[in-house]
Nucleic acid binder design. Sequence first.
DNA 1: ATCTGTGGCGCG
DNA 2: AAAGCGCGCCACAGAT
Length: 589
Amino acid sequence: MPGGLALIRTAEDLRTFLGTLKEAPFIALDTETTGLDPHRDRLLLVQVGTHDRQGLIDAQKVGKELVVMIGALDKPIVMHHAKFDLKMLATLGERKTLARLLVSDTMLSEQLLHNGRKAGIVAQGFGLAALADRYAGMGLDKSVREGFTQVVSADELTEVELRYAARDVEATYKIFASQMPLLRAEGLLKAAAIEGAASWGFAEMELAGMPIDAAAWKLLVEEADRERAEAKRHLDRLFRDVLSFDLFGAGDLNYDSDQEVEAALKKLGVKVEGTRREVLEATGHPAALAVVAYREHQKIVSTYGRRFLEHIHPTTRRIHTSFKALGAITGRASSSEPNLQNIPATSRFRACFRAPPGRLLITADYAGAELRILAEVSGDPVFVRTFEEGGDLHSIVASRIFQKPVSKNEHADLRARAKAINFGLAYGMGAQGLASQIGSPLDEAEWLLDRYFKAFPSIRGYLERSAHEALRIGFAATLSGRKHWFQDLAQSGADEGTKLRVAKNMPIQGTNADMTKLAMARIARALAEGEVDAALVNMVHDEIVVEAAATAAERAREIVETEMVSAGHEFIRRVPVVVDTHVGEAWQK
DNA sequence: ATCTGTGGCGCG
DNA sequence: AAAGCGCGCCACAGAT
């Protein structure tokens, strides 16, 4: 590093340093912090540079001006796990600049390159050190940078620590330089661009968190707990002949143990294999049904109870989930600690996510996203025309299959059957699956599927053709070019049928992920550029939630809808893209 | 005491 | 129980 390891402490010095990067095609960036929580921990160092020149910026001394100046370079900024660095950079302010950065991410790029062919690299993983070794033959000692928790100023960092901080930037630069031709060769540049652009969106969601009415939530859990206890007493009565009771009259059967439940049911003369809800319901036995009822309440108490509320952040009083941008093999994101993508939809739990006074939540979701994607990729004329005309696809499909007029009011039962087929076929569902889904005999389900595919030959044609082609070439892809290689799946011993179903589903589910992630990126940028008092707060696969000041809510809603539609049309060109929005105090479908 | 795999179930 | 795809969390069960 020219000039040794001197820290850049002023905007003027930073300007001088950045001037030396004029010729670089892109800039690598990394940060050193006192911890992982942007609401509690501090940014110490921001390192920027290339393979042969790195600058170490004292983040607290230079302040938000460093973000402005890096943004003004107008070059792609490459980070390893950009979401984290962006969240820490945001502690300086300048979110508007961060939302506009052209971000690339070496970690996500590597995941895209190995999606479904992790075998052989899984031991090293996707950490910076692993990639530095893989691409640049560089050894990075992460342990040097593990403990800055006691550090209060960049001045305290030792020479060794600063040298490693600079090496991380050098490595990141070299890694991306090597990844780029690979991404290009695999047709993954667009997918990588979406991931990079969305990383600020995920950062914004994690930073903002979801507002929650903890008291209301607690009441719902307590109610479920009472109902659970009542359900248990009921169970004890039903099972009284096959269990023993303690002094307090409580039975010794553990209803959370599937083994014990199965054995106890057997003693009552109810033979089941497994204790899944459908199995228990199929018996029609009161004791089996009582177990189902108990489980319903138990699920609420265990999954959405005390531990869930422990995720409320001590300072923001909000729920800050953690997103994995590439959480699913299809390209979907996942959410954890807590998972905000599996909050009960029909219950009152979603209503507990309430914006604070003076603010509102905008809930926006793609209407029939997967079926529109299927219309796009198959080109089925009926599907395409129905969406063009704004018709009800399930009704149209039912009318075709059953040869009689069907609507939401007329022959609604037939519409429900068509709906089950429509959703199931995107996953490669067979007659047996359909039979159990709609509760009809196997031969009837077979007849239905047959009628369906006769009415829509291009749907079957597309699904069969694309799935077999995917297996032949070794991967399935979305409309952005995102790939799922079948190497790991094959190695796991999956049979032909499983592979075909996965291949059918990937382009549909994955293109939906492409759309939603691109929309997130565009919404975050448009809100920032328009200086709208609003932020992304959650996403659930085909749905985006934004919190806005009440005075800005209508403008934010318009931006959300416009950007979701435009992002959808990047991939869906044959049929309209429709987004339903809802504005209110609470999160609502 | 802690880890890992499994069954079950919440969501799209 | 699953020949319907993708997740994460819970409790249990069996292991270390």
